[in-house]
Nucleic acid binder design. Structure first.
Lengths: 107, 107
DNA sequence: TGAACATATGATAATATATTCATATGTTCA
DNA sequence: TGAACATATGAATATATTATCATATGTTCA
């Protein structure tokens, strides 16, 4: 109905599907382990073992999180021998984290 | 120890506390109900009843989420008679959501 | 080929989170 | 004051998420 469409428009032109996609994207930043991984990659690509060392975390936990970050296209991996090197997929990652830090600082 | 401090620095100068704060902030965007509420406020301040109508949601659920958004300083409320009008606390909110949408579009 | 290494994955248990219901608090106005 | 309205809150349940353990997959090299 007309009324419903109008309300929907107020929610800034996003349909349910896009909203869920957005929420899923932000979920990636909603866990400190994943933020650590992302920030660890600010300095360049690293393999899983290096990430585990930097974060002092269990390999399995790191791999599970990397899987999610990959699915969200926030990181990408390339195999090099036995190791897989991960890096940030684009620079939205650092922009989004920077915005978050700004918000925290300013209030 | 020296080694540990060095690793921490790689995680872009953030200490554990700041990381947790950041994660908590992004948790606010990690749920489609809360994103809907935030987006609903893009068009200006609204009271709880209006938000419930726009989102077709239960008053209690909306209040619970507003409480979290208030705690994260993403929205603020002012009482006007019986109603409480909520609005976005600053414009990081729309910037962060815009960055998220950009990321989704571009991949 | 098979041993050693690096990473991924499935299942499980512990924990966190969202929604709902019932009810409390705060405000207005007759 | 008390009835009606608007919003907030506590408790309970349902669902989602994370870390861990055990194990599987993929790669190298002797």
């Amino acid at each position: 109905m007309e009324q419903y469409d109008q309300e929907e428009q107020l929610i800034s032109n996003m349909d349910e599907e896009e909203l869920l996609e957005l929420a899923d994207l932000f979920k990636m930043f909603a866990d400190s382990t994943r933020i650590k991984i992302l920030c660890d990659l600010f300095s360049g690509e690293k393999n899983v073992g290096e990430i585990c060392d930097d974060l002092q975390m269990n390999q399995s936990a790191v791999s599970h999180q990397l899987k999610q970050l990959r699915a969200a296209k926030l990181v990408k991996g390339r195999r090099c021998g036995k190791a897989i090197y991960y890096s940030l997929a684009d620079d939205h990652v650092s922009t989004i984290i920077a915005m978050g830090r700004d918000h925290i600082e300013e209030c």
